[in-house]
Nucleic acid binder design. Structure first.
Length: 476
DNA sequence: ATCGGCTCGCGCAA
DNA sequence: TGCGCGAAGCCGAT
């Protein structure tokens, strides 16, 4: 077993089945075939038992915000996985509510054991817990979320700041960087598992489906600029790494598109942050062994690569994994009660302040405000499934300013992001939306109406700071 | 163009 | 107990 023990979690206490016909890997978050500790674990279990591997990848219609946008992205990825896994792959697309129920348990009745993904966000923890009760065999969840195993941090308290979390990473990462997931855990040719024909008869084994026939939200259309899947993800990574120097210069130019654009692929598991970090380090001629340890939490000079590369690595490692730390240690991370005490106190003190502009959820969703820059950001969100990094902060701050109460603002910001953003519903949504309301931040005076000491942003200053002309021309 | 002040909690040194 | 320091800001003073 090459997967670190810290990354393994026994979901139930059932034993393995010695005469099982295959090891079943239920791919529900890391929807890729490379750099995937869970898939790697499943294959090694299959090898050691001398049985084939069966990979189940399913998508249902009952998850929150199910729409053409997210379904199309996942189905793109299923095509890639089908091409790579061949007969070992069992893709399933639910056509009506509840239809998929029982498939996993049925496949598990012939399995030696079941391996799955330990993704802490959205509805998956509940789904996996229920699966642990439903299957009649051992179910192991594997953490392939990031460089730091989610379990390698204090259990009782989330890190309140990036600074404190970065210091933790600087102590712990060298250990974990010596134990990376395998680039290609599987052989080119996989043995064919034998699946009970009655299961295939009841749950058709295909990912070919007309989205229009599914009971999902068709008003959130697919984003053609972002095709899903492992192959598209890797192509985007290669393009980004080749132009990494541009990231340093144009990161804050909304129209330049210098950002990585990888977050949707990370969210759906079509690429691993391990692969991204290795590619960025390799570009600078470095490798994991050269990373500094024992830092004090500072961003500078940690990885020993160019400034642009360091800045990006801080995004994809420190900030991304801070989100995982947050959601696994803060049960109410999407609710008002889960915000820092100082933030709630200051917003509370200003909840009755006059609000010059108040918009409803529907008005904001349609981008009908007095602020052209804000409307443009909302339009990019609706059409492209993302908002430029800097403008996303402004977008959120204005929702807080223009809503009837901070609680309502929090709900609206999450709902708009969850519904329209390709990378919504992610642990990083909880941290980035939370940041609007003071999470992972500090008070920043002077005291202002509505905001109190929550950091404030203005469209006028943003327009001065960034070149927003091209952006308004495109999305305004 | 650049700088300090605004304001709080945390970890660490003493 | 004191001190340094922190995702991106804003504003007024120089």
């Amino acid at each position: 077993m090459t997967t670190p023990t810290l990354r393994l979690r026994h979901v139930n206490d059932r034993p393995a089945r010695p005469d099982g016909a295959y090891v079943l890997y239920w791919m529900n978050a890391y929807r890729r075939t490379r750099y995937n500790f869970a898939l790697q674990t499943a294959w090694e279990e299959a090898q050691s038992r001398g049985v084939p591997l069966l990979v189940l990848e399913a998508i249902g219609v009952d998850y929150g915000w199910a729409s053409d946008r997210f379904h199309a992205f996942v189905l793109d990825g299923m095509a890639d996985n089908a091409a790579r896994l061949g007969a070992a792959y069992y893709p399933y697309v639910e056509r009506a509510s509840g239809q998929g129920h029982g498939l996993l348990a049925a496949l598990a009745t012939r399995a030696a054991m079941v391996v799955t993904d330990d993704w802490p966000g959205f509805h998956l923890p509940k789904l996996v817990a229920a699966a642990g009760r439903a299957v009649d065999v051992a179910l192991v969840a594997v953490d392939s979320n990031g460089l730091l195993p989610v379990a390698d941090a204090p259990d009782d308290k989330a890190f309140p700041t990036a600074y404190a979390f970065r210091r933790h990473l600087q102590k712990r990462l060298s250990t974990h960087l010596s134990c990376l997931p395998t680039e290609e855990p599987l052989p080119q040719q996989l043995p064919t598992p034998e699946v009970d024909p009655s299961i295939e008869a009841r749950w058709p084994r295909t990912f070919e489906v007309d989205l229009a026939t599914l009971p999902i939200d068709h008003t959130v259309p697919r984003v053609t600029a972002f095709p899903g899947g492992e192959r598209a993800a890797r192509a985007r990574l290669q393009r980004f790494v080749a132009h990494l120097d541009v990231y340093g210069e144009d990161r804050d130019t909304p129209s330049a598109d210098a950002t990585s654009g990888l977050s949707a692929y990370l969210h759906f598991g079509h690429i691993s942050s391990h692969e991204i970090v290795l590619a960025v380090l390799a570009r600078g001629g470095w490798n994991p062994a050269t990373v500094q340890t024992g830092g004090k939490g500072s961003r500078e000079g940690w990885w020993g690569v160019s400034t642009a590369a360091e800045a990006y690595l801080d995004q994809v490692v420190t900030w991304r994994e801070l989100g995982f730390n947050l959601v696994t240690r803060t049960p109410d991370h999407v609710r008002w009660s889960g915000l820092p005490v100082w933030a709630r106190a200051t917003l509370d003190a200003h909840r009755d302040d006059p609000r010059p502009y108040v918009y409803t959820h529907a008005q904001l969703e349609r981008g009908e405000t007095h602020d052209a820059l804000w409307n443009a950001a909302q339009r990019q969100l609706r059409e492209e499934g993302r908002i430029h990094n800097y403008l996303r902060m402004l977008w959120g701050k204005k929702i807080l300013e223009w809503s009837a109460s901070p609680e309502e603002a929090l709900d609206i910001a999450f709902a708009l992001n969850d519904r329209w953003a390709l990378d919504g519903r992610d642990p990083n949504s909880s941290s980035s939306i939370g940041w609007i309301f003071g999470r992972h931040d500090r008070p920043w005076g002077p005291v202002r109406p509505i905001f109190g000491t929550i950091r404030w942003m203005s469209s006028a200053n943003t327009a001065k700071k960034l070149d927003v002309k091209g952006y308004l021309a495109r999305w305004g």
